[in-house]
Amino acid sequence: MARVKHFQCTECGMCCYGQLPLTCKDAFANASRFPLCFVWTPLRQGSKDYPLVATLGTTIKLTGRKELAVLITPTAYIPSSFPCPALGDDNLCSIHSNKPSRCKTMPFYPYREERYQAELLTPRQSWACDTSTAAPLVFQDNAIVFRNDFDNERQELLEQVPILRRYADYMLKYSASLVNNLIHASSKVKAGHVITSLSSFLTASKNADAKHIAQLQLPLLKDYMAKTAGDVKLAEFHRNYLNWSKEMAYLSQAQS
């Protein structure tokens, strides 16, 4: 059977909720819009996505000739029940012409090999994507038909590998619990994650713009802190916003 897939966005806005993985470029371009963190997703050997994740992220040697591949993504840290702050009252993207490459490429996902992209075209339960044959043909013979956005995002991911590897080396050197947390996350049936702070990335990458970025992040973190207060299900989000707001408060006043 020829793997032919049709897809048309119906602008239902349902994929504009929750955490959004970003390229480094998009993350810092939107530092005034999204509360930022870094999400580490470990993958065990044998997974079909392993080679690409090892290329785009990093690999960590474990005991007994085992290793983990880890994807490290700058991420808009937003609870899954919360809409993207750029989603307008009309349920359309308010920054459409200038939106992050992750949003432009949807529903494709260049963190996985192109030949596996067909699996990503099945809408999630609440999504209203049109995948009938009336929708445009978007995937054929294991290849994406309209591929500009996919290629651009993949290119950005490849270009940022060195800076993310330096960050990984830094975190593995200084965070005693990180490897164990990654091993623990990788042992879960559903992919687990480990979250690290923006302050650690700014330190590791010796970001000269740290103070300015912190000044942009601080009001956002305080806003999300208020929005998540008192909700038991969002306690972890709330605690992270609180912790990071303290760090950003320090950085935004630090003498450079």
Binding site: Y170, K173, Y174, S199, S200, T203, N243, K246, M248, Y250
Partner: peptide, 14 residues
């Protein structure tokens, strides 16, 4: 010295 995450250390100290 450049690797010292002062912002995080300030938070932990507090």
């Amino acid at each position: 010295r450049d690797d010292f995450n002062r912002a995080e250390a300030e938070r932990l100290a507090e």
